[in-house]
Computed example of a mutant assay.
Amino acid sequence: MTTRMGHGLAISPEQDLAMFADMARRGKHLNGVSALAHGFTFTDGPAEDLVFDLAYEDHPTPDYFDIFAAAGWTHTVSVGNCHIFKAAPGTAPLHLGTDSKRDELVRNRNRYALYTALALAVLFIVGLLIRTMPWPSHVNVALLTVAIIPFVYTAVPLIGYLNGLRKLND
């Protein structure tokens, strides 16, 4: 089994999808996500020429995956609400127009804007507590660290979705 770090499906999906295709050409097949979704796992197998794409759906039903299968796409792995599919080159793309891609990006942008606002509010409250409470410095650092992590993990994907929307509109 091989593990490779991803670029971030929210930030640079094209790079990750290209990496999946390159790994498949080398006989390494995407089969999962490693710890904390920071990387992808690959198993050895025959080399294949494949293309990869992704779609977002919060609560997919079996019919959801059947629709893609009927169009020639095979579900490979899911990461939260992001579902990665593979197909032979020349298969019709998952998103036939920019409208369905835009709808997915807008939905994700709105979700992560809310998450980022909540994380920013928590960070602000922790900052106020640190300024007003006479706690030891190691407690302040620990609180600030715990508050920054959710902010980073929500703000970075938000930026990725905003950039994806900008690219669609260019």
Rank of each mutant, 00 (worst) to 15 (best):
M1R: 06
M1S: 08
T2N: 08
T2R: 11
T3E: 10
R4E: 11
R4K: 08
I11R: 04
Q15L: 14
D16R: 06
D16P: 02
A18P: 00
M23E: 09
M23G: 00
V33L: 15
S34N: 11
L36C: 10
L36H: 08
H38K: 06
G39S: 15
G45Q: 12
G45E: 09
A55V: 13
Y64D: 03
F65N: 05
F65G: 03
D66E: 13
A69E: 10
A69Y: 05
G72M: 05
W73Y: 12
V77H: 08
V77W: 07
S78Y: 14
V79D: 12
V79Q: 11
N81C: 06
H83W: 10
I84G: 03
I84A: 02
A87H: 06
P89L: 10
L94W: 00
G97Y: 02
D99N: 09
D99S: 10
S100D: 15
R102I: 05
R102A: 11
L105T: 01
R107Y: 13
N110G: 05
Y112S: 01
L114Q: 11
Y115A: 11
A117E: 06
L118P: 10
L120F: 15
V122Y: 11
V126I: 14
V126T: 11
G127C: 08
L128T: 12
L129I: 11
I130C: 12
M133S: 12
P136Y: 07
P136A: 12
S137V: 15
H138I: 13
V139C: 06
V139M: 13
V139P: 06
A142I: 13
L144S: 12
I149C: 03
P150D: 04
F151Y: 14
Y153E: 06
Y153N: 07
P157Q: 08
I159T: 03
G160K: 01
L162I: 13
L162N: 06
N163G: 00
D170Q: 08
